[in-house]
Design a protein around this nucleic acid. Structure first.
Lengths: 217, 217, 217, 217
DNA sequence: GATGAATGAGGGTTCATTCAT
DNA sequence: AATGAATGAACCCTCATTCAT
């Protein structure tokens, strides 16, 4: 089941991908209109179905396409030699923000796709979800240096607390941005507040060896 | 603009509510079919529109209906005289799980409704969202006793970390339950794991006064 | 096929008749809603169909009811002893205006009913139309005194010219009133202009015997 | 907003136009069924809405289409160099009858459309009405030679009487044709009767200069 | 490859009419 | 007599998909 779309040169692919991602992100799977997609992409109705056999195939192609790009760029950029939990997780949070800023349309689509619950695509999405970054999250922390952790705590639980804090902070920040319609976000402020949270967590769960690693970074 | 549906006796209401909540939860607002709803509810097409004037009105009625039930039961049950953060939050997390288990269909609908972004209902949803539990979350912690917190930390940030940890744990637990199709959940195990998280957080952020309050509760 | 509605006392009939006539006049037969009628009349849906068996029967009842009232009042009031064409026709035109002013709702309904072309009622309307004033128009002029007409003209054709002139003038006047949204019409002006037309016609088609009958009237 | 329908070749357009005009003419805008139109036209439901976006657009297209044809053919044929009122108006009345006989379906539609008062289309109809023949009626008489009129009469009123007489005669004639289901009309008879009316009016309102213009025409 | 006309099932909604109460 | 819940066909319109060109 090879897609004819793959034989197309990239500069012909782009308007189609852009139009389709935007439409799906805005309206969800079922409500997205192939009519609108072909209109925005500047191609004929028939051609879309020549490239992709069905609306569903187009959606799933986009899902795999976007999730692969994010996964690939994520692992190409992240420095897994950094063994300190807090440095590692700060790096990850930052990387995520950078990727979203680099590919906002892809992210919008992917974010909407993950929440998608149209029965036509739900099963296939869940099947593919296993390959996605989010699900491999835990594995990103298996080689963390835990020697500096206070002995009273289970390592895995501490890692979870740190992850959930980052996620909660991210969600809260995104919500603030959205509700205040802030287009020009002050990265500096966000970064500083994030660092305070990380410092608190480090103070709480690590032995105080006087290095205060994060702030001197 | 009183709904004729309200004059109906509850045992006639139930199949309609159930069918509608299920359909909306599964497919989202736009994709949900009134045809499917009336089929599942065992009533005629016309009757649905006799009770509710429009699909949107049905959806909004369900939203208000479910959110009111959750809010009401939540505040009727929760003990706000408990000033200890960890006891309070443990109570809340537990209550949430109990409510979800008591009204799983309502919860599924409400969860989907909150994420809904169909333009037809988005504005009305956001208007009503202000009354919802989730948005009042922060207010639930304003009278917490902070005298036992270590002085190094900002109180609000600590509270956030605790909340986000609980939310992360809840989401993880719900995901496990869902993926393993567990209908008979072991509350005991979940409760114990939750307590460990809370104990860690208490140890991390509170002065050790030797009471070890939570475990002796 | 006697209507149960007829057994009702008039003061219970009135709101139903009023509501139905208004709805039909505003929206035409097919587009008129029995729901709106019962709401405006303050009765239940079932009762309307208890009185009249069907929407069509209600409509035809109203048609016969209103056309009978107009015909009856017309013939009760008009002075057929007046044998002068111009006086007779002026009387008729004036009487028509008075009847419309006396029963504006009935007239609105009747006017709309005559133009109605919904296939459900068209045949029955045309069958009943024969009894209506408009169709008996010509008969109203059979005993006119024609001795004063110039001999060059056929009497019937002159009568037709006069009738059509009156009708044309009436239509033009109604259109002016409608387009200018005049609610307070100057009857005086209209009457004077109408008289000029009638005088012209008299001058044109009658022997000049110096009486100038109309203006001295 | 170009209609896709316009790209269709005329022999494919015709059954659709015919079916739609007939349905609208018979039942009025609101009561007309697109289901019936596509059935009569032999096309699918979707195709009608592929050509025209909405029922209203179809109706307005038909209105512009038919009124343009009538206006165009009217002004192409009428001889405005004829300055005599009676010759001019005879020409117009005759032309109108010819056009109606040439395009009976278009006329039926157009006649119904002008009387249409469905709120969905009323505003648009009135906006376009200004371009229609009927409204330009008065302008057709501005350059009439009035030197032969008797001085006792106001010119405009005489013209109105003549117009209303023609209209009354036309309406009466059409009604006779309709009620007797005459498909083969005797133009000769109608023409002769019309001429008598016009001769009477000329005798009545013009100076007798012995030419008796119309009958020698 | 590329087009867009053509399909028909399904969408939400309205409606006159019936009937148990 | 009087109610209004209940019906289901019909309403206009949208849609992904197909196919002749």
């Amino acid at each position: 089941m090879t897609l004819k779309f793959l034989d197309l040169n990239p500069q012909k692919q782009k308007p189609i991908l852009d139009a389709a991602m935007k439409e799906f992100a805005q309206k969800g799977y079922k409500n997205a209109s192939t009519n609108e997609i072909v209109k925005a992409a500047g191609i004929s109705k028939g051609l879309l179905f020549h490239y992709f056999n069905a609306k569903k195939d187009l959606f799933m192609y986009l899902y795999n396409y976007t999730s692969e790009i994010f996964t690939k760029e994520f692992f190409e950029t992240i420095d897994l030699s950094e063994k300190d939990l807090f440095k590692r997780i700060r790096q990850m949070a930052w990387l995520k923000i950078e990727l979203i800023n680099k590919h906002p349309e892809l992210y919008n689509f992917l974010y909407a796709a993950i929440l998608e619950d149209a029965p036509e695509v739900k099963n296939d999405l869940e099947a593919n979800n296993k390959h996605l970054l989010a699900n491999n999250y835990a594995k990103l922390f298996k080689d963390i240096d835990v020697t500096n952790f206070k002995e009273d705590f289970e390592v895995n639980k501490v890692i979870n607390i740190v992850i959930w804090t980052i996620e909660g902070f991210s969600a809260q920040t995104l919500a603030k941005i959205k509700s205040q319609q802030l287009n020009d976000v002050s990265y500096e402020e966000i970064s500083q507040e994030l660092d305070v949270y990380l410092k608190f967590l480090e103070m709480a769960f690590c032995k105080d060896d006087g290095t205060d690693s994060l702030l001197k970074q």
